[in-house]
Simulated scan of single mutants.
Amino acid sequence: MPKPVQFDVDNNAKQDRWKETARQSHVNLVSSLSPSSEASSQEKYGADEKVQGSKDIVVISEDGITKIVFNRPTKKNAITLQMYQEIMLALKNASTDNSAITVFTGTGDYYCSGNDLTNLINATGEIQEVAIKTAMALREFVSCFIDFPKPLVAVVNGPAIGIAVTLLGLFDAVYASDKATFHTPFSHLGHSPEGCSSYTFPKIMGSAKATEMLVFGKKLTAREAWAQGLVTEEGGYLVSQTSQELMRKNEKQNLHAANAEESAVIQERLTSEESSNALMNFMSRKAKL
Rank of each mutant, 00 (worst) to 15 (best):
P2E: 04
K3V: 15
P4R: 10
V5S: 13
N12W: 15
N12K: 12
K14R: 14
Q15V: 15
R17K: 15
K19A: 07
A22G: 04
Q24C: 13
S32K: 15
L33G: 01
S34N: 10
S40Q: 06
E43R: 14
Y45A: 01
A47G: 13
Q52P: 15
Q52C: 12
S54M: 12
I57Q: 02
I57F: 10
I60A: 14
S61Q: 10
F70R: 00
T74V: 07
T74D: 09
N77F: 07
T80W: 03
Y84D: 01
L91M: 12
D97G: 06
A100T: 15
Y111N: 08
L117N: 07
L120K: 06
L120F: 05
L120M: 11
I121H: 12
A123F: 00
G125R: 07
E129Y: 09
A131L: 11
A135F: 09
M136W: 08
E140T: 10
V142H: 01
C144S: 04
D147K: 13
V153A: 04
N157K: 01
A160I: 00
V165I: 10
L168K: 11
G169D: 02
A173W: 10
S177H: 00
P185Y: 07
S187G: 12
S192D: 05
P193G: 10
P193F: 10
C196I: 03
S197Y: 07
T200W: 06
T200D: 08
T200H: 08
K203S: 03
I204K: 04
G206H: 06
M213E: 03
L214Y: 14
F216T: 04
A222P: 11
W226K: 13
G229P: 03
V231M: 03
E233T: 15
G235F: 03
S240H: 06
Q241Y: 15
E245R: 01
L246T: 07
M247E: 05
M247I: 12
R248D: 11
R248S: 03
K252S: 08
N259S: 13
V265F: 06
I266A: 05
E268Y: 09
E273L: 02
E273C: 09
N277Q: 15
L279A: 03
M280E: 14
K286Y: 00
A287H: 02
